[in-house]
Design a binder for these strands. Structure first.
Lengths: 203, 203
DNA sequence: GTCTATAAGAGGATAGAC
DNA sequence: GTCTATCCTCTTATAGAC
């Protein structure tokens, strides 16, 4: 049944276009300022059609987060495959990807204060599964890096994990970019330094 | 005219109560999720009365930010008065205050993506003046600390400044607090470590 | 300046024809 | 599944009496 398969593909492509738009708008305006009308308008379909694909605005955000998680997991897998890297170097590589993605305006960020949205995400198995997988993978590297003494052992792994996750919504990137005087690479290098080496000078 | 003065004091007290409520609600729910109705209800006055004191929701947020800036400037002045501290130690002291304030739920944070709100703040002289004063004061310490080689000289002072400002809305604090397993002091110590010493181990 | 009542409009979600 | 048109709630802001 090639017809059915074709229809399915067309619909999937449309859904991907929707998710891509949502990701951009989330990164650009944030969840609360993103309207479903704007999403529909930019995708070029009617709002009612949008609701045939996704049940709610929260579902839209969840789909964007799931796709982003997949990209992150993909990046982790690629880094995993690179031989000869230390655990710390792997963590740095993934962090750099996070910063690049945010600076490119493709990292959706959700307000941690919106409890309705948070509950929707917590109830989303697709999202939670990916989040836990990602946490586990990074957690392994964190433990390894602390074992080989390349990562500060005073910090509990969870604190390190949260600190790395927080790079996805670090406002410093946007502040430095707004000045317009620095290249993206330069900005990322600075944030990498402050994240891993700290603000205080090293001997 | 003691009557006039008394009335003025009463009104000022009410305005301060409003601002205090706004600060708490901003910290708790964020700007978009904070409704003017909720502010009025918690202060215990009618919404129309609220609008006699502040012209708009944005003005409410601006007032909260101004008061917070004043607290920050006050803290900076106190730290300035303590003798025998290095520039780096002064920066750490102010940063610690920032983290304590946020963890106590008294640090209002505004979404950097809301452009209407940002424009309102940029047009608010009271806010901008304080922001620039604070930036100048911290900037001096940053330059000093880089001169005495206690702060990483690879980072431009502006990047350091933004990184310190960003501690006011660092989500890591809330994440660690949500676990409920750690004391506030412990959490702050960890964030201080990751901020100034970095995640990577020091020799 | 404080209240009650209401205007005015944005935005999430749906009905029903095709 | 897509559209147009509409519903309905929430929210900012104001009118007007006291």
């Amino acid at each position: 049944m090639p017809q059915l398969s074709f229809r399915t593909k067309v619909l999937q492509a449309r859904e991907e276009a929707i998710v891509a738009t949502v990701k951009r708008l989330l990164a650009e305006k944030g969840y609360d300022q993103m309207t479903v009308d704007a999403v529909a308008a930019e995708v070029g379909i009617a709002k009612a059609s949008l609701y045939k694909h996704f049940a709610s605005k929260e579902a839209l955000a969840a789909a964007a987060m799931v796709q982003t998680m997949d990209r992150a997991l993909q990046t982790v897998a690629q880094v995993q495959d690179r031989p000869g890297l230390s655990a710390l170097e792997r963590l740095k590589a993934v962090t750099r990807w996070t910063l690049e993605t945010q600076l490119a305006g493709e990292m959706p960020t959700l307000p941690s204060q919106n409890s309705a949205l948070r509950n929707a995400l917590l109830a989303d198995r697709g999202y939670m599964d990916r989040l836990m997988t990602l946490s586990d993978q990074l957690g392994e590297w964190i433990v390894q890096a602390q074992a080989d003494r390349s990562l500060d052992t005073r910090l509990p792994p969870q604190a390190v994990l949260f600190t790395l996750f927080a790079r996805a919504c670090d406002p410093v990137l946007g502040f430095l970019q707004a000045g317009g005087q620095h290249s993206d690479e330069q900005i990322i290098d600075w944030v990498m330094i402050s994240c891993f080496d700290g603000l205080a000078a090293r001997p």
